[in-house]
Each structure stands twice: as structure tokens, then as C-alpha cells.
Design a protein around this nucleic acid. Sequence first.
DNA 1: CTTTTCCATTAACATATATCAAGAAGCCAA
DNA 2: TTGGCTTCTTGATATATGTTAATGGAAAAG
Lengths: 191, 191
Amino acid sequence: MFDGIRQYYQELIPKLSDEEWQQLENRLVIESYPKGSLVCREGENCKGVYYIHKGLARLYYTVDGREICTGFAKEGEYLSEYDSFLTQSPASQSMDVLEDTIAINLPYEKMQDLYRNYPIFNQAGRKIAEGLFILISRYNTRLLTLSPEDRYQYIIDNQYHLIQRVPQYMLASFIGISPEHLSRIRKKMTR
Amino acid sequence: MFDGIRQYYQELIPKLSDEEWQQLENRLVIESYPKGSLVCREGENCKGVYYIHKGLARLYYTVDGREICTGFAKEGEYLSEYDSFLTQSPASQSMDVLEDTIAINLPYEKMQDLYRNYPIFNQAGRKIAEGLFILISRYNTRLLTLSPEDRYQYIIDNQYHLIQRVPQYMLASFIGISPEHLSRIRKKMTR
DNA sequence: CTTTTCCATTAACATATATCAAGAAGCCAA
DNA sequence: TTGGCTTCTTGATATATGTTAATGGAAAAG
């Protein structure tokens, strides 16, 4: 069950000892979410960082009753409303799951506890934050520098699993356009 | 000269010792940039993280010969093309200075050196990455959930110094609109 | 199996915002 | 002071993209 996470951390901290891993493992919480259920609602404090063991989760804003997706995480990936998690303040995005999902949660307090008592985890925390920064930064770059068509092409080339597992109207908002416009772009591209 | 930085780090690492601070200080490089000069050109590897001692710096994409600003840093703030810095790969954004600027640079190799030999700096690195994540994440939130007018109002309310020190056409691209459109928004708002 | 709900497509139309172009205003240099 | 940049404003026009609405098919639910 924890193999994936352990490997993940061992890449972040090559010299992680068995004792330290054990301390981390003791603090992990396995959680199960049926398709469509919320992991965190906008306005609540995000309670943890979630390693997706199985399934698919999504991060999104709700604006005027409309949803704008900004991220997805499948098996082996992490997801969190990390701003809310770090600052323990109300989340501006919600998280839900698009498929039945098993997540492994590292709750906020346990993580702080880990930082305090086993400082080596600061190294992991640093690399996780750096990785998330790079992720959002590149997402930003694509939104600001590519055309809608090129943004869709990027997903085809680099995140094809999303095309297979995520409804098109969610991908449209992820790309920053309306579902109708994405449909037209797709039509144009197949010609 | 280094007072600002030292205070900055001491907030990130409350138990930073004199010895450790000395190690950091030894690795800092003071650099001077005349108004308009480049700190890092798109395509080059970003060489460091820059603490702005005096002046004002800017981060921006160049798309079809047009500039799109994504961030500014004034005295007491940090700036870097952090993706490029972390991965030591070509930057997708350039950095330049809008006023005569003195920056204190912590170069990549020295920072890695610090992480290796004084692991406590991982804690600072973590908090810096977390802070940058929060910064870009909130910028993203504003771009995706606010109207152009509200994005401009946000700057008035929260970053008024930018209005005083940054040309309006740069703010327009920072907000994600054309200079002409910002001019019209301003006209409308004063009514 | 049906029935219902959800989702993708398509077309007609609306609109926010960009683009182009010209002039005015401020600012710096000589 | 004068001229030349740079920046801001304003108007006319263009266009990409959104909106609304209708249809049909696929998937889920019963």
C-alpha cells in the first residue's frame, strides 16, 4: 500500500532511514472517496496533501456557479490545495474525485510534527514545494504564451491520459476556453 | 548591506546560528544593474535568486516580440526565474530592472553547497519555495477568477507602489489586457 | 432493457477585448 | 528652450471567443 509513497520520498531524500520512514508511515491516513465526492470544499481549510494511490482527483475554482479546473492528479501523483494547506486558511479551490479513489493523506499537524522532530523532512518539503512551484509556473506559462489550440495540443502530447479520463468540458476550462470552443478546435484539428 | 537578508533568513529559520549566517553571507554576491539592463535573458539559465537591496526588477515573457509581465520585486523582496534556477535549464522568462538596482545574488552552486553542508538551510529553501508557490498561485487565482477591472483594483488596493513606479502598459500586461483597454478601464473607474 | 441524465456537437448570434491609427502629454537630453 | 522619445488616451474597426439553444448519442441508473 505505501510502496509508491515510500519510493517517492526515497527519491526526494536518498538517505532516508528506516526509522524515519516508519515515522512518516505512522502519520499517513488512508482515505477512500467514491466517484464525485469532495475531498475539500472551497472555503474550508485544506486538511492535507493527498497521494493518489488509485483513481483520479481534480482541483477547481467555482466562479459564478461555473467550474474552472486547474489541475488533475492520477495514481502516483500528489494533489492538494497547497496554498490553503500551508497557510491553514480557507481554500479558494475545491478538490473532488472523478473516479472512485483511494488517497493517502498526510495531515497538516502530522506534517508540522514531522518537520519539528525529524528535520530531514524539510528536504522533502522543500523539493515538494519546488516541484509544485514548477508545475504551476509552467501551467501559467502555457496559459499566457500559447494559443488555445496549442494548449490543447500540449495535453495531447504530454498528458494524454487526461483526454481519456477527463470529460471534455473540464479539459476546456483547464485550457481556459468554453466547451463549445474546444469542440470547434477539435473539429478544425482533425481536418 | 546584508541586514535585510539576514533578518529575512532569521524569520525563516529562527534558530539560525551566527556561524551558519556567516556561511550564507560568504556566498552572497552584490551586483549592480543600471536602469533597463537585463539580469537574465530568456533562453539562458537563471544564475541565482536575487534579493533586491535597492531598485525595482521585473519578470516577463516575450511572445511575438511583445512583453508580458508576470512579476515585480522592489526593495526587500526576492526575484528569480525560479523554474529555470531550480532545474538549471533555459528560462522561459527574462528579468530586467526598471530602475538602477542593487541586487544580492545567491548563485545556484553556492546554494546547493549550502544545502549539502548545512542542512538547516533546507528549512529556508522549503519556506522560500512555499512562499513563491503561494505567490504564483494567488496571481493565477486572480487571472482566472477576477475581471480585468477587478484585477486592476486589486493592484490599487494591495500593490499601490506598482502604480507609482511601473509604466501603465506594463501593468496592463501584468493584468492580462492591452494597454488601450487598461486606459479605458481607468477612465471608466474615475467616473 | 428502458429511461434518464450527461455530454459533445453544431449553428446563429452577441460581446468583450484586441488592433490599428492618430494625436496629446509628459519627460529627458542637449 | 527645443526637439525627440516614450507613454497615455481616444476613436474606429476587427476578431476571437463566449453565449444561447437545439440535437443526437453515449453512458449511467433503475
